[in-house]
Amino acid sequence: MPQTPPPTIVPHGMIKTGARVFLVPGWVLAIAILLKGYADIGDGFAAGVIAAVIVILQGIAFGAEELEHIRVARFAPVMCFIGLALAYAVAFVPTFFGYSILTHFPRMNEHAAHFGPLEFITPVLFDIAVFLVVYGFCVGAVMTVARAELRHKRLLQRARKRGGNR
């Protein structure tokens, strides 16, 4: 099979700078969107996508190796499953106390402790779970491919060197 090496794309300096500059503000924005969902438009899903895009941008700008150094990226697949478990727990724990599935506490019209506009209610937990799942899935999927690609590249180089010696 004819095999042409894929063209290597060197990211522009602007992307590198932008990726670094936006990393922390991006996460702040994501968390803000996650939390303000209780008073305004916004939810865990949108927040997860934004956080994932920011992290994936690091990989695009600095190469897939960089993702391994970012802790929130390395553990993304685990975060995805933790989020899923958290969501299921919010859904199923009420059934042990005789409520129906996904019942939220405190119930409607009951007093909920709050901190500013943020209320401490179980839907927040569920939204955090959604955030984790979305973030974990997006970054985890990219990471899996990136890891395979890295190994593939390293291997091709090694094998080519050996093939050339023969």
Partner: peptide, 17 residues
């Protein structure tokens, strides 16, 4: 090369933490 790549990818998939 292909075989080696395949083996390595399998290994990589098995090692995904």
């Amino acid at each position: 090369i292909e075989e080696e790549v395949e083996a390595m990818i399998d290994e990589a998939l098995a090692e995904v933490p």
